[in-house]
């Protein structure tokens, strides 16, 4: 185990923050390990990584990690991360959420983050339950499963996190489990490297609440279930793992910076229009930029460029 120590020394707030709040057998520690090894693969500068989390067991993850870390409110981590990333585009922003945090209270922010496609990495630890509050059903609790708030079995249809992310427009969608630690590490690195909104769902175990109520009272049984019921191939009756979506979608930050460029250009042109005496000749890039515009206002601007250009 000696070779593992550098991870602890380099990436964990090992002196200050332990032991963790997680129960024995919890999968979140395995996910935290996967995230750190994934980050280590990419050799990112710790000062340039921000970890944003919501509320719940998963929300407690960043406190142990030696990056810029913020533990926000329930469900809103993606909205905080959106502001942070737009304010500081140089940061690699990784958002850690549980299934309840991301898909119930934060469901609206989740689909809009997928749609907007800002360069964030969302890692959703799905343990099918609200562990922090004692084991109530979540939007991913399977039909018929028991929870403290569904003692007669759950009748709410569950979400498929990855299908939802895909339909909402995420650029990258992948799934793994706590059993597949090596795969997790690789997928974390890929998700972080992807330019655009990347979603990685990690199926994780909550033996203490979900497991006990559903005849899988140990972490080993639950992880064996992940082993036996998932596949990297499309197999009937098995949950698909691996990369499900990897597509090129315009990234929001890039699009915003383009908008800034054209807004400044148009402002320059407006100002030049106001005082023709100080007009400078339009550069070729300005002429090209306005050619692609189609609105009436832009046509007017294009005309102005043309006129000034001839001078």
């Amino acid at each position: 185990m000696a070779e593992k120590l550098p991870y602890i020394q380099d990436y964990l707030r090992s002196k200050k923050r332990f032991p963790t709040v997680w129960c024995p057998g919890c999968g979140i520690g395995i996910v935290a390990g996967g995230i750190i090894r994934g980050i280590d693969r990419l050799k990112l500068n710790k000062d340039e990584v921000a970890i944003v989390s919501g509320i719940g067991c998963t929300g407690r993850m960043p406190v142990y990690m030696d990056f810029n870390t913020v533990h926000t409110t329930h469900g809103r981590a993606l909205a905080f991360a959106t502001g942070l990333k737009l304010a500081k585009p140089s940061l690699k922003v990784i958002v850690l959420m549980g299934d309840g945090d991301a898909l119930a209270i934060g469901g609206n922010h989740f689909i809009h983050a997928c749609r907007r496609n800002l360069d964030l990495t969302a890692i959703i630890v799905n343990n099918n339950t609200y562990g922090m509050t004692g084991g109530q059903q979540s939007p991913t609790t399977l039909l018929g499963a028991r929870s403290t708030n569904a003692p007669y079995g759950n009748i709410d249809q569950p979400f498929d996190t990855c299908f939802l992310a895909k339909a909402a427009g995420a650029a990258f969608v992948a799934r793994t489990t706590t059993y597949h630690a090596g795969e997790m590490e690789r997928l974390v690195a890929r998700a972080i490297s992807k330019k655009g909104f990347a979603v990685l769902e990690v199926l994780s175990q909550c033996p203490v609440f979900y497991g006990k109520m559903n005849r899988m009272p140990t972490a080993v049984e639950m992880m064996q279930w992940f082993r036996d019921n998932t596949s990297t191939q499309d197999v009937v009756g098995r949950i698909r793992r691996g990369v499900l979506v990897d597509r090129e979608v315009p990234e929001y930050g890039d699009e915003y910076r383009k908008l800034v460029g054209s807004a400044q250009e148009q402002k320059d042109i407006r100002e030049r229009k106001k005082s023709p005496a100080t007009v400078r000749l339009a550069g070729p890039h300005e002429a090209v930029a306005v050619e692609h515009e189609e609105s009436e206002k832009s046509a007017e601007v294009a005309k102005a460029v043309e006129v000034h250009g001839r001078k």
């Binding site: 909205a79 502001g83 500081k88 400044q264």
Partner: peptide, 27 residues
């Protein structure tokens, strides 16, 4: 945008305020 600053219309007011705090944390 013309000043190089950020404007964003969020999906609701909860997200708006959260994004404001995130941006402030970004300086």
């Amino acid at each position: 945008p013309a000043r190089g600053a950020v404007f964003i219309q969020m999906e609701d007011e909860i997200a708006s305020m959260a994004a404001v705090i995130g941006a402030s944390l970004g300086g």
